[in-house]
Each structure stands twice: as structure tokens, then as C-alpha cells.
Design a protein around this nucleic acid. Structure first.
Length: 419
RNA sequence: GGUCGGUUGGCCGAGUGGUUAGGCGCUGGUCUGCAAAACCGGUUACGGCGGUUCAAAUCCGCCACCGACCUCCA
């Protein structure tokens, strides 16, 4: 959405958000749009989310929106008034049912509607705009059969989704805060224009809170993704990797609120590292003749959890059950056969990386292959010292490496290190 | 005020009638030269008050608190 996003809190008439920002920062409106889109795309990639196949913009679909308005005018459900076009909810409600998504009843909306500019142009207070006539000084405006103006709020979503996804399309996502009025109005517009429901499934995710309080600029507890990466926020104790944040979010169900706090993030970071360590270990364990663990059961439980409305927290809990299995096998306390080992490796690839979209932390920052060989050589010397019970030297080597940020873990299969 | 949702152990967070969710933290132990890691065990809670039921975190009622939304913000 890069047009028609009005602010109503301001005194007087609402101003387009993009236009307001452009004026404040002395930029062209399209520069403002581009600036925030660039940041958004970078953050989304950092979170390892897939790029969209298409990202249509409202200003690139003014003609399509005008055509859509004409269709709605032809049905008689939309009407023109003083250069603006509105959607008549009473007429819509005669033929269809308004409020099916949010459970609102039209009559209840009358007394609960705020007093706003331009109400007298409308048949009813709850009618919403499809096209707005531009007021003097309005920056972004286009000619139309009704006036020089700009498209109304809910319209672009109905128009662009129908154009690119089809009529109807399968899944419409969004935040729970958009259910009313936005998604409700989308349904009304599209149903009136298409004479059928535009969407098969609505998927709404919940909000996030910070220390139990909703995240809002007005409350001063807003954290940007870049602040999470750098740790530069008074509520944060340290920086967090994007994958820690992704894992943290997936540990809660998408329909639940999620509380951000430094303590919770630290917990997620430790858990995520443990999961990734176990997956590394899974790549090195050796198969035995028989299995003492039930891989099929784990496999089924993971799929059942995802099939249950994408219950990622439950699926992750199963992955942690598997972590215990993997570590026990590595410790020689449990055994796994060839078939099960391959199955287990595929399961973690599928669930942790393909489904949850996690990725391993950046490879150890080894400048060159030589650096790794040097560390291995130093650890060989340390092992020699240990072999002759020269623990003073062994510990000195460990301390020197630790000071350089290299952690040593003595396992049964020899010393392992990571930077 | 209205509509809808929530209140789970130190922290986060699953769970729609009877079975250990899970992670983090804390704690006891095993292993280890020590440390770390790993593993095993402990930490067993459901806002309050009533009710239904053989049995309720889960169903019903009331109360308290929190949150989203209530048409030109999309």
C-alpha cells in the first residue's frame, strides 16, 4: 500500500501517511515508499524468509481499481456522492451478509461509529469509501470518471489479489487487528463484485508484546529488527542473531500473542544453539546394526503437529525429544541403524530447515583453511601434553585459545572446537 | 460502552475432561585430570469464587485483570 493510507488522529482532515512523511523528510512520496521497502526487504531476508513471487503496489493499479469501482457501481451497491464513491452496506446486507468474519452486526455499528469528516456524503455512517475526491493540496491524485482523487482504503487489496491470485484464491493472511474493518470490507467488495466469496481460508496471526505490554511507539517499547541485531535498545541485554528471533517466534503458535523480553530471548538463543549443535552431531554419528530408538514415531509426531494448524511449538518440542536421542546415540547410550539414521537426518533437514526456515549460524569465522589446520595442530600438541599428564601445559593451551574466542570441548571422540 | 480473545510453574510457551508438552533457569547425579559439552533425575503450574461430572487447566456462571478491534489507518 503506497497510497490512501490516511491518518485520522490528527486534528482536522486525515493526511496521507506517505505524503506526510514525504513533506517531513522533504522527499518525493515514491522515495519514501522505496526507502522503507528497501529496509523491509533487507530485514525479511535476514530472517531467512522467502522472497514473494510478486509484490504489487497500489499506485501501479489505479486503472484496475477504477474498473473495479465501475463494476461495483453497475451492481447498484456502490454510489457516487460529491465526486467520491462509497459502498452501500445496507444494500449489500439485503443480498449478502456483512460481518461474517468478525461477527459484527450492522445495526451495532451505527451507535459505535466515530464522527468523521465527510459523513454527510454517505447514506450511512458505516458506508466506506471506494474513491475519494482529492482536497486542495493533496499530493497523490489521479483523474477518474468521478473526480480527481485517489482510491479508497480497502479497495487495492481486493483488486490486486483478484488480479494475481484468482477469483477466488485459497489463503488470505494478515494480522488479527485487520479483521475488522479491513478484511470484512474486502469480503464485502469482492463478494459484491464477484457474486461469490473471494477467499477460501483466512489466516490471522496475533500481536507481539514486550514485557507483557503491547508493542507500540506511543508506549516507547518499540523494538526494530535492526535494534535486535545490534542489541542497541534499553530492554535488550545483548544483540540477537536473526535465526534466534525466528526460532523464538516459532516457539509460540501464530495465533497466540508472543511476549518479547530479554530473558525470553536468551532462553530461545540457548535452545536454538542446542538444536543446531545436535543437528551437527547427527551428521557425525555412526550407524549400528540395530536401533534402540523409535524414529518413525518421532517422524509421525512432527507431521501431526504441523497438520494441526501449523503447531510449530509442539513440533519443536518433538525436535527436542529427538535432540536427546541424537546425543544419546553420540554418547553410545542408544543405537541407531542405517535406515533410521538416514530417516532422522532427512527429518531434521525437512522440519528444521525446509519447514521452519531456520538456517545454521554463519560458519565459524575461519579466515582460511590454514587457520583451521593451525587450530587442529595446536590441539594435537595439547593432546600430546595430556598423554603425559602435563595438564599445566594442556590447560594453558586451552586458556590461550579461549582468550582468542575459541571454545574447546573434550568429547569421547577427541577435542572439538568452535570460534 | 459494544464485539472478540486471553490470564498456565522463576522466565517463555503448548495443551478444549482422565495420560510427563517442550525450551530456558535452578538443582542432585553420571561421564571427565579439571572445565565445558553431553546424558539421567528433581523442580508437576493452570487469575479468583461457585457449579456440572466418577473425574476440569480443559465445560457452565459470576468477578478481577490484560489485549485486539469498534469504518475513511490498511
Amino acid at each position: 500500500t503506497d497510497v490512501g493510507h490516511l491518518e485520522s488522529e490528527d486534528v482536522g482532515e486525515g493526511e496521507d501517511k506517505i505524503a506526510k512523511k514525504a513533506r517531513q523528510e522533504q522527499l518525493e512520496p515514491m522515495e519514501v515508499v522505496q526507502k522503507y521497502m528497501n529496509t523491509f526487504h533487507r530485514n525479511v531476508r535476514e530472517l531467512n524468509s522467502l522472497d514473494p513471487d510478486i509484490e504489487p503496489r497500489a499506485t501501479g493499479h489505479i486503472l484496475e481499481q477504477q474498473e473495479y469501482i465501475s463494476r461495483l457501481l453497475d451492481t447498484g451497491i456502490a454510489y457516487e456522492s460529491n465526486g467520491s464513491v462509497y459502498f452501500d452496506l445496507d444494500k449489500y446486507n439485503e443480498k449478502y451478509e456483512y460481518g461474517i468474519l468478525s461477527g459484527r452486526i450492522l445495526e451495532d455499528l451505527v451507535s459505535n461509529t466515530r464522527t468523521l469528516e465527510g459523513q454527510d456524503e454517505k447514506h450511512n455512517v458505516y458506508d466506506f469509501a471506494l474513491w475519494k475526491k482529492a482536497t486542495p493540496g493533496h499530493i497523490m491524485k489521479w483523474p477518474s470518471p468521478w473526480s480527481v482523487g485517489y482510491p479508497g482504503w480497502h479497495l487495492e487489496c481486493s483488486v490486486m489479489s483478484a488480479k494475481y491470485l484468482g477469483e477466488p484464491f485459497d489463503i488470505h493472511g494478515g494480522g488479527m487487528d485487520l479483521i475488522f474493518p479491513h478484511h470484512e470490507c474486502e469480503i464485502a467488495q469482492s463478494t459484491a463484485a464477484l457474486n461469490k466469496q473471494p477467499v477460501k481460508y483466512w489466516v490471522h496471526n496475533n500481536m507481539i508484546t514486550i514485557n507483557g505490554q503491547k508493542m507500540a511507539r506511543s508506549l516507547g517499547n518499540f523494538i526494530t529488527l535492526d535494534e535486535l541485531w545490534t542489541g542497541e535498545h534499553e530492554l535488550l541485554g545483548k544483540p540477537y542473531e536473526p535465526m534466534t528471533i525466528r526460532f523464538f517466534i516459532l516457539q509460540a503458535h501464530y495465533r497466540s500473542t508472543l511476549d518479547f523480553s530479554n530473558e525470553a530471548l536468551q532462553g530461545a538463543e540457548k535452545g536454538f544453539n542446542r538444536l543446531m549443535d545436535a543437528i551437527d552431531t547427527l551428521g557425525t554419528v555412526k550407524a549400528s546394526a540395530k536401533s534402540t530408538i523409535d524414529v518413525d514415531d518421532l517422524f509421525n509426531k512432527c507431521y501431526e503437529a504441523m497438520n494441526d494448524d501449523l503447531n510449530t511449538p509442539v513440533m519443536i518440542s518433538h525436535l527436542f525429544d529427538g535432540v536427546r536421542m541424537i546425543n544419546s546415540v553420540a554418547d553410545g547410550k542408544e543405537k541407531i541403524n542405517d535406515t533410521d539414521l538416514e530417516k532422522l537426518q532427512k527429518l531434521y533437514q525437512a522440519m528444521a530447515f525446509d519447514v521452519l526456515g531456520l538456517k545454521k549460524p554463519e560458519e565459524d569465522r575461519v579466515d582460511t583453511e590454514l587457520t583451521g589446520k593451525l587450530i587442529d595442530a595446536i590441539l594435537d600438541i595439547r593432546q600430546e601434553a595430556k598423554n603425559v599428564n602435563d595438564y599445566t601445559t594442556a590447560d594453558l593451551i586451552r586458556k590461550k585459545l579461549t582468550d582468542l574466542g575459541i571454545t574447546i570441548k573434550d568429547t569421547k571422540r577427541g577435542a572439538r572446537w568452535e570460534i
